[in-house]
Design a protein around this nucleic acid. Sequence first.
DNA 1: TATTGTTATACTCTATAACTATA
DNA 2: TATAGTTATAGAGTATAACAATA
Lengths: 158, 158
Amino acid sequence: MEKQRKTSPTDKRFRCNDETLQRFVGYHLKRAFNVVQADLTHTLKPFELRKLTYSALVLIVDNPGLSQSQLADAMDIERPNLVVIVDELEQRELILRERVPTDRRAYALRATLKGQRLYKRTVAAVAAHEEALFAQIDPQTRETVVAALMLIRSQGTG
Amino acid sequence: MEKQRKTSPTDKRFRCNDETLQRFVGYHLKRAFNVVQADLTHTLKPFELRKLTYSALVLIVDNPGLSQSQLADAMDIERPNLVVIVDELEQRELILRERVPTDRRAYALRATLKGQRLYKRTVAAVAAHEEALFAQIDPQTRETVVAALMLIRSQGTG
DNA sequence: TATTGTTATACTCTATAACTATA
DNA sequence: TATAGTTATAGAGTATAACAATA
């Protein structure tokens, strides 16, 4: 995860011509995304959370009682992929799978006290890392960027 | 890849509370990134290219003679992961692995005529899809967004 | 000793088909 | 029949260690 210099010190400072790829917003989006994701992975590591288990924990704390289907929908992942995520959080006693009396097929997901405490610590840590990562971007620009990103996202969902 | 409605028609229009995650730019970045990547995957499918083989092809066409190490560095991936990508492009006769007389460890990568033709068609297709995807974002805003994304990326490389 | 390309391996995220038990 | 959760499986992308050939 740490970023070492990969090029040898003896190389002729080869600069690859990026011009064609640089024409595309998607290219810049990917490069920035990689940096942010790597930072997030690194931030979550001490808490023994992956990006997906982190997102799931946050959504369960903020939406007590939601079902796995609803959670998968919110996380924009397929239900089969959510099972192992919920398994992991449950085994670590961060959440509970409670049976729903009115629909015995579904589970109501709830965070334990331990889960709620971990939530608070991780959200604070992620916020601090984000702040450092985006320190060079002024609030006005950040708003513009977020608005644009939301517009792009809406293109996908129709 | 296609986006179907996942929620059942009978559900109570459950809206998951995103508030905590929405505070983070990274969250919006991920959602937008997913849309753009899905669109790119879909765009490249008719050409039988994946995102990585596409990027590699573009960089080889634009940088004839570069080595696999240099290409891996430009693509920001590990050298072992590049091997299968180059294998695939070579087997499809889109590129050639030429031996470098001055350093017999390295390969000089070059696109064939077939590779150059595929490059032209795919770049045009990707450009058209990008234009459609970002149509709602005015040029001024796009520039602001790209500048911000480049700033974020630079945080990762130091 | 260091580098290029390679193999083997593993982890994360994503995607689909098919099963079970309920509704 | 349809849905909730599950299992199995497969494809991508990413990461590290270790090796042979070469520098």
